[in-house]
């Protein structure tokens, strides 16, 4: 069997693939956090819960309306995004003038409520979500077996991330968003409805989390705590990448997924902590994060 650095290549590529899968979720979730933080100045602690809501929405859509995976991939983010819009209109918009801490506390409280409600209704054991037929099976690449669904997750996540990045950096809407991040008062004085833009940005960030949740449903169990487990790592990713940097969130998300995967191969004992070790080092050396601008 082929070996690289004394490691069987199938194990290496296998972990690399798992790293990319995890990285796909890190990137999608930290991207949403970065977009929300950039516009709202709020650290959205309910992001993990909203990811979980996306997975549950897909599950419930299948159970009660028969809508399968593909439609759920669109409908669930829209539904969860709407709950985000409601949260922003009801609560968050009152907090912008206050310290970051208030937004963080509020969204943290909301996360507890969302998770508590889910646990109450569905219990904490995971619910299965079956893979769509069209994505069963896989490809034998010679050096490894690549399940189709995992390939899809990586491609879809990359596509959504790059699409979002493109819109923000290269379109007129993106110019509005960047300008409003810098000076919302002036952008509004040019005639742009900035409050509505902020509401929709939050809805979009939440929808991204829900999209990740739908994609996660067939891989991981759909469970109330699926978000809170993941979101801790995602916050570390965001700290490493730099709060509010779009490209930073994407690159760091995928990069850390891969690093985590490789650590599993070369130094398994550290695989659960490597991201936090990197976070500590980055905080020491570059407190604004690898891609962050100093605030």
């Amino acid at each position: 069997m082929l070996e690289i650095f004394g490691i069987p290549s199938t194990a290496l590529f296998g972990q690399l693939l798992i790293g990319l899968i995890n990285g796909s979720f890190y990137a999608l979730l930290s991207l949403g956090l970065a977009v929300i933080f950039g516009m709202l100045n709020i650290i959205n602690f309910s992001h993990g819960a909203q990811y979980m809501m996306g997975a549950f929405a897909a599950y419930l859509l299948l159970q009660y309306t028969g809508l399968g995976y593909w439609p759920a991939l669109i409908v669930a983010p829209i539904l969860v995004g709407i709950t985000g819009v409601i949260v922003e209109r009801l609560f968050l918009q009152r907090l912008y003038k206050l310290d970051h801490l208030y937004g963080l506390l509020l969204t943290f409280g909301l996360a507890l409520i969302f998770e508590g409600l889910a646990r109450n209704k569905f219990g904490s054991a995971g619910l299965p979500y079956t893979l769509p037929d069209s994505l069963r099976g896989g490809q034998n690449l010679g050096f490894m077996f690549l399940p189709n669904y995992r390939a899809w997750v990586i491609v879809a996540s990359l596509g959504i991330c790059l699409g979002t990045w493109f819109v923000i950096e290269w379109t007129r809407l993106g110019a509005y968003l960047r300008a409003a991040t810098e000076n919302p008062t002036l952008v509004r004085a040019f005639g742009i409805n900035v409050p509505r833009m902020i509401t929709l940005t939050y809805g979009f960030g939440v929808a991204l989390a829900a999209f990740a949740g739908v994609m996660a449903a067939p891989i991981y169990n759909v469970s109330p705590q699926m978000g809170s487990e993941l979101i801790i790592v995602v916050f570390a990713v965001v700290v490493i990448g730099g709060m509010g940097s779009i490209l930073g969130a994407i690159v760091t998300g995928f990069g850390l997924g891969v690093i985590e995967g490789l650590t599993k191969v070369f130094f398994p004992e550290a695989s659960n902590t490597v991201i936090f070790v990197i976070m500590a080092i980055v905080l020491l050396v570059r407190p604004a994060g690898l891609f962050g601008r100093r605030a």
Binding site: R188, A189, F190
Partner: peptide
């Protein structure tokens, strides 16, 4: 009216600090 509505009424503002955007 809010400032976006005022702008849409046909008034434009050039601020003292110029307000050129660094990220644009």
């Amino acid at each position: 009216r809010t400032s976006d509505q005022i702008a849409r009424a046909g008034i434009a503002f050039c601020p003292e600090e110029r307000g050129v955007f660094a990220s644009l």
